[in-house]
Design a protein around this nucleic acid. Structure first.
Length: 327
DNA sequence: CGAGTCCA
DNA sequence: TGGACTCGG
């Protein structure tokens, strides 16, 4: 979910053209979660293979990436490492919401209420180890690199941008800005082809809001993060006012009094995150045979479609000529 | 979600 | 050429 900064940050609009030739570091969990919740049948059932394994995410990864690479955008996926201890409360709460949604979904499905089933199925999505592993396997077969974060994926993704290995972070969560991502792209999807792509630059955002990054983080803490609830009644607009009135520290102190969490620790998650600096990024040629073996023979995808998607991956090779540096 | 099809 | 709609696994 992330921090609700939407009401105060203004997106620049960009198009796919602006990302041409650039590397984007993609928040993998964020993306997978979206695929799992949206790629479903009308009654909410996910796509599955004949053994009952969920395959919605494989469809999303295959087609979105082949489309992006065809447009000469180079994706790197960032997977979350160990979640900070402070996140466990949020995680427990989400699990509860998900389990409840799953019950309603199953009942609605039994009752034949398709619309209700779909609505709650979407909320019941969860990332199982199988889903994460099969996603990594598919990325590898497609020749797309991924990086394992030490902690939060967004922090690692932000680091890649800072380190010059990526141009922007792609995620739906505004938290990226608090993690220090210099550039953030929202709605990076094929169907948002025509408009809709949102672009945020941290330095511009800070200038427009007239706050420092440290103040932005404190604002986020007051609004509420995945690591600690915020101060009741404080949303983005109020938090911004507090920053301008120099009241952040006193409000943080107020929150600290009623909070079971150490807010300094929360602040450190955003400002002093430990990241994996020992990663290698290399795009490879897709392994078409193994891709077809995995997608079609193991997971029931159409050979024709996967073959076509695989061919789009190497389009860049032949059509752009001099991109050998890529491989 | 994205591919593919159909029809204006 | 593109919007609406369906299907994929």
């Amino acid at each position: 979910m992330g921090v609700k900064l939407k009401d105060i940050v203004e997106p620049e609009s960009i198009s796919f053209k602006d990302l041409e030739g650039r590397v984007v570091s993609i928040d993998a969990f964020n993306t997978l979660y979206q695929f799992l919740s949206t790629i479903r049948q009308r009654d909410g059932r996910p796509l599955t293979d004949e053994h009952g394994n969920v395959t919605s995410h494989l469809s999303g990864i295959l087609y979105r990436n082949s489309s992006m690479i065809e447009k000469d955008i180079k994706p790197i996926y960032i997977f979350d490492g160990k979640a900070p201890e402070l996140k466990s409360e949020t995680q427990a709460k989400r699990r509860e919401v998900r389990d409840e949604a799953e019950q309603i979904y199953k009942e609605a499905l039994k009752a034949g209420d398709t619309e209700k089933a779909r609505k709650f199925a979407m909320r019941s999505s969860k990332l199982s180890p199988e889903i994460i592993e099969s996603s990594k396997k598919l990325l590898t077969l497609m020749g797309i690199p991924y990086v394992e974060a030490k902690g939060e994926g967004e922090a690692q993704a932000a680091y890649l941008v800072a380190n010059g290995d990526a141009y922007a972070v792609a995620s739906q969560d505004y938290d990226c800005l608090m993690f220090g991502a210099k550039r953030v792209v929202r709605n990076l999807a094929v169907s948002s082809n025509l408009g809709d792509l949102e672009f945020y630059q941290l330095d511009k955002v800070l200038r427009q809001l007239n706050v420092t990054r440290e103040e932005l983080v404190d604002m986020g803490i007051l609004i509420g993060t995945d690591f600690c609830e915020g101060l009741k009644g404080v949303g983005a607009k109020t938090a911004l006012k507090l920053a301008h009135n120099g009241q952040l520290k006193e409000k943080i102190a107020e929150l600290q009094k009623e909070s079971t969490h150490d807010l300094d620790e929360v602040r450190d998650i955003f400002l002093k995150h430990n990241v994996n600096t020992d990663y290698k990024i290399k795009w490879e040629k897709p392994d078409k045979d193994k891709l077809i073996e995995f997608m079609c023979y193991e997971h029931g995808f159409s050979v024709e479609r996967v073959s076509r998607a695989s061919d789009r991956l190497k389009n860049l090779n032949s059509s752009q000529g001099s991109l050998d540096a890529w491989f």
